[in-house]
Amino acid sequence: MGKKTVLVVDDTAFMRMTLKNILEKNGYSVIGEGEDGLQAIELYKELNPSLVTMDITMPNLDGIKAIEEIIKHDAGAVIIVVSAMGQKALVIDALNAGAKDFVVKPFQPERITEALQKVSRG
């Protein structure tokens, strides 16, 4: 079986680099990086990744709206949110939109890989 492919979406280059490093060390292949919600939707359609990590606070289109759009396009999309915004109502919004898990920044690297393992099994 090939490596699982991941699309990383975050507006800051530093966080994309951090996530990419964690993922590639753990056997995932990062096939795309998006800087905002609009790019996330475009890249998802183009690359059809097995997993997506999605930030919430981003310019142009926020992560929750991007999740809604991606799920509309592909009901089976596997998306986890990685955001500093851990407010209860936002977590609920993200899960309602179709996210499979929610990781609050800052995180230990294991938290990301655990979340991805959990959702890809489910």
Partner: peptide, 25 residues
């Protein structure tokens, strides 16, 4: 800035019951 402000707002949200959105930094 994003992480510290986000954490600050998480506490504010718990205390006030309000949900805040945040602009990019």
């Amino acid at each position: 800035g994003n992480i510290l402000t986000g954490s600050y707002l998480n506490a504010l949200s718990d205390m006030t019951g309000l949900t805040f959105t945040l602009s990019p930094p």
